[in-house]
Design a protein around this nucleic acid. Structure first.
Lengths: 203, 203
DNA sequence: CCTTTCACTTAACACTGTTAAGTATACTTC
DNA sequence: GAAGTATACTTAACAGTGTTAAGTGAAAGG
């Protein structure tokens, strides 16, 4: 009777163990530098066992990214909701995005910078999209609020959202991938980016 | 007498052949998807021969990036020099940067996005920096001209340069790594980024 | 002509992601 | 309770990777 449920539960538990082990290794050492054998070793199973739970290495990564993404989306949602002024909401959301990236550089890398795109696997590409769409949707809502409140000269919601995303991403990714570059004070640079974009958009 | 010179010339010729073969493959298929054996096959030498000319695969890449970078720097220099108004010069330079990235996506990827950073090899990191410094210096000069002409509210040359670089990079890298995303018209997005940043900086 | 140097190759190492085949164990059915 | 089957996992292997140590053959120098 309940045996099937118990088995399903045990399977799910191992799936989570794999995910936990992989996440820790990926985040600590980077996706490319972690082999399936290392993940297997960590959970004390044979390497091939992982393939009973995940299609391949990339799937393992995507599963982790989806989790992480949910966290980011949730955080951004909370931040933008708790703010009155739409401009300040947008500013806070942007700041949260960049901070999140800098605090989880390897996650950010595999999700937005490196993400190994399989040749001719469009299915997976859509999955990625759906994963990021939530965070993007949040940003979009914040931008829409600003436009609705007639705070911006530009009225193309999509274009402005993408513009701001690109700005955030530019700074986040550069700070992550080129840590040895002689940057000015990081937090000032981030604020400058956000302020400059908002000022540039202002009505 | 001349034998030594001839040999040196022949060595240099093969070095260039390797570089040419590697560049073509890297640009066409991406650094990660090209093996040393494939490069060797293309030049019809044994794989290990490459190691007589380049320390490792990454060095091969860096050599190619340096070439490409020189081209970008030269182009940007020409563009910013031929312009009268410092703001227009900056705008044109930015546009050239992004266009260059979109036209050489794999080059841009390996140079600014992926660039496989070797663990504990700081020497190489400096080399990278010196490589990019020229293009960065050009941008810096264009920014400095704007500030000198009192066109900008912000007066921190370094911060503004890095800000603009981040903006350019953000849009370039996102357009390259996420080609399936429903972007608004690309050239409009690029122009919007450049204009918004400049407007936001204006005095 | 002999020796040494030089350019290059062969063979191998230690890895990688991934799959096919094999092996116990636990569960179901008689 | 015994036989058969499904399940969960492992072993062995494939085809590939970057890279190195050892070996080869020809050209250059004395």
């Amino acid at each position: 009777m309940g045996t099937q449920q118990r088995r399903a539960r045990e399977k799910e538990a191992l799936r989570q163990d794999i995910l936990d082990a992989a996440r820790e290794l990926f985040v600590k050492e980077g996706y490319e530098n972690v082999s399936m054998r290392r993940v297997a070793e960590k959970i004390e199973y044979s390497p091939t066992t992982i393939y009973l739970y995940f299609e391949d290495k990339a799937s393992l990564l995507y599963a982790i990214c989806e989790e992480t993404f949910a966290k980011l989306a949730k955080r951004m949602e909370a931040i933008t909701r708790d703010s009155q002024d739409p401009i300040e909401a947008l500013r806070a959301g942007c700041r949260a995005y960049v901070d999140f990236g800098l605090k989880n550089p390897n996650h950010y890398k595999v999700t937005f910078i490196n993400h190994p795109q399989h040749p001719r696997d469009d299915q997976r590409h859509l999955k990625e999209a759906s994963m990021g769409m939530k965070a993007y949707g949040n940003l979009r809502a914040a931008v829409e609020a600003c436009i609705r409140a007639k705070k911006f000269r530009q009225t193309n919601v999509e274009a402005v959202t993408q513009l701001i995303w690109a700005g955030e991403h530019g700074i986040t990714s550069l700070l992550i991938t080129m840590p040895n570059f002689p940057w000015v004070k990081k937090s000032e640079l981030i604020d400058l980016m956000i302020s400059t974009l908002i000022d540039g958009l202002r009505a």
